[in-house]
Each structure stands twice: as C-alpha cells, then as structure tokens.
Amino acid sequence: MSEFDFSKTIGHTFKDSHLLKNALTHSSYINESKQAYSDNNERLEFLGDAILDAVISDYLYQRLSEVEEGQLTKLRSLVVCERSLMECASRLGVGKHLYLGKGEENSGGRQRTSILADAMEAVIGAVYLDGGWKAAVDFILHIFRDTIEDALAGRLYSDYKTELQERLQINGEVSILYEVEKEEGPDHDKTFYVCLTANKKIIGHGQGRSKKEAEQHAARAAIKKMGC
C-alpha cells in the first residue's frame, strides 16, 4: 500500500508528503541507506509526544470539570502510554507502511511495540506540522476516541508505573528510581535491562525492547512481589 492509501486511512491529506514519509522512516532504514539523520522519525516522535500529551490533557480537563488533578493524571497516563499508541498504530496499519532497515525488518520490527508507538507519535507530529493545531487535535481525538472512552469507563489495563507509585506513596513521599543496568544487541534490536529502587532499596527488575517497556515490566514485577 502507498503513503497515499495510508493518508486516506488516517483521514488527513498531507500537503507535504515528505512529512509523512519522514514520520514512517525508522532510524535503521536511515543507517543502512546512509541518509541524513534528520530523515528518520525521531524528531517528529519528540514533537508528537508533546502534542499528544497536551491535547489529551486539555480534553480531559474540559470534559471532567469535577475531577481532581490526581485522577486526571491517571486517566491521561492510560491514554498516553506506549501500549495505547501501539494499539492505535496497529489499528491504522502503521507497521506495513514503515521504512525499516533489513535487520529490523527480519527481526519483526513491523510488529514491535516500541517502533509502532514511536511511529504513531511521529505521525501525530507530522499531522501537526502539515495541518496546524486544529488538524492535530481533530486527528488525535478521532483516532484515540475509543481509547479515551475505555479509560473513562475503567476498561483499560493498568499503567504499572503509575499503579506502583500510587501504592508506594499512599503514606507519604517515596523516592522511586528506574535505572538502565545494561543494554544488549545492535541498535536495531536492543534489549534494555532496568533496575527499580524505592528509597534506594531494589524492589524489581525488568527487561524490554525499549526503556519504557523495561520500566513497565520492572514495575509489574515489583507489584507482584508486594503481593498486590
């Protein structure tokens, strides 16, 4: 399928088609094809992450006028997280449109959670640059509509990091730290190992294809260890 087909799928016609290609280009493709760093989607991912956070925050603030800050934060974390982004990317078929290096392609990169989530953020960034703030808001609220409603109805899975923080800090402030102990594998196929401490005491370990995923696994392990 072409980028034009994907543009129709997401409901935004790009005036600058290069922005869409940029959003769908993984660093592994750039590394293998010897193109400029700016041609990968990492900068757009950075931008899209901030825009998504702002749009969802504003939407929840406007819609839930009687809800306190802590609950708004929890709801936002359920919508603006790696898993939600990955699932949204899967629904839109982002994976089959990605430009990947051969190594990443052969190791299952088109289905990898971190790559799909990052690409989804990059597409959001591209829509914003191409169409402006209103286009970005309309796009985000459309593609995350079901996710938002599921979060409000309590149907979404837990964000383990948020859940753990709430449990640990129920009786006061606790210093929680996630540290990457080591990384293994080439750039296109890394595994991250994270150590989780609370008030300098180790309470969990986790590993994953991204730092975010490893941190979630470490938090889940800590919750399980607590017997929760």
Rank of each mutant, 00 (worst) to 15 (best):
G109Y: 01
D39Y: 12
D39I: 08
D146E: 15
V94S: 03
C195Q: 13
L196I: 00
I148W: 02
Y59T: 05
Q35G: 11
L78F: 08
L196T: 01
Q35A: 09
D39E: 14
D58T: 12
I143Y: 05
Y128T: 02
L164W: 04
H12E: 05
R167W: 06
R209V: 08
G204Y: 03
A151C: 00
E149N: 14
G109L: 01
T25A: 06
S107Y: 08
H18G: 10
G154F: 08
P186R: 06
I170V: 14
E179M: 06
K21W: 07
E181N: 11
K74S: 13
Q207K: 12
D58F: 03
R220Q: 12
V94P: 04
L52A: 09
D16Q: 10
D58I: 04
I140L: 07
S158H: 10
H188N: 07
D5G: 09
E213F: 02
K21M: 12
G48Y: 01
Y128I: 02
V174N: 04
M120F: 06
E42Y: 10
R83D: 11
A151K: 00
L100I: 03
K201C: 10
V55A: 08
I223Y: 06
R43Y: 13
R83A: 10
S38I: 13
C195N: 13
L60H: 00
S27F: 13
I115G: 00
H188G: 00
Q169R: 11
L196F: 02
L47F: 08
S77Y: 11
D118H: 15
D130I: 02
E82W: 05
K21P: 06
R209W: 05
E82I: 08
D53G: 12
A214T: 02
T25F: 03
T113P: 10
H12Q: 08
Q111T: 13
E68S: 11
Y61L: 14
G95M: 00
K74W: 10
K34W: 10
S28A: 03
Y99Q: 09
G93L: 07
L129Q: 14
A36F: 06
T191W: 11
R155K: 15
E149C: 09
K224R: 12
V137W: 04
V174S: 05
K134Q: 15
G93F: 07
H142F: 09
H217I: 05
N106R: 13
W133P: 02
Q111F: 12
I124H: 04
L100Q: 06
Y61A: 14
D58A: 15
H97K: 12
I140S: 06
K74L: 11
L92N: 00
L72Y: 09
D53S: 15
S38F: 14
L92Y: 01
L20E: 06
I170D: 10
C81N: 15
A89F: 02
A89Y: 00
I30K: 05
K96Q: 14
Q165P: 04
R63H: 14
S77Q: 15
A89T: 02
G154T: 08
C195F: 03
Y193G: 03
I30L: 00
H142K: 15
I51S: 09
S65T: 15
G95K: 02
I203W: 01
E121G: 09
E105A: 12
K34C: 09
S57Q: 12
R76C: 09
G206Q: 06
G132F: 05
Y29W: 13
H18R: 14
I115D: 00
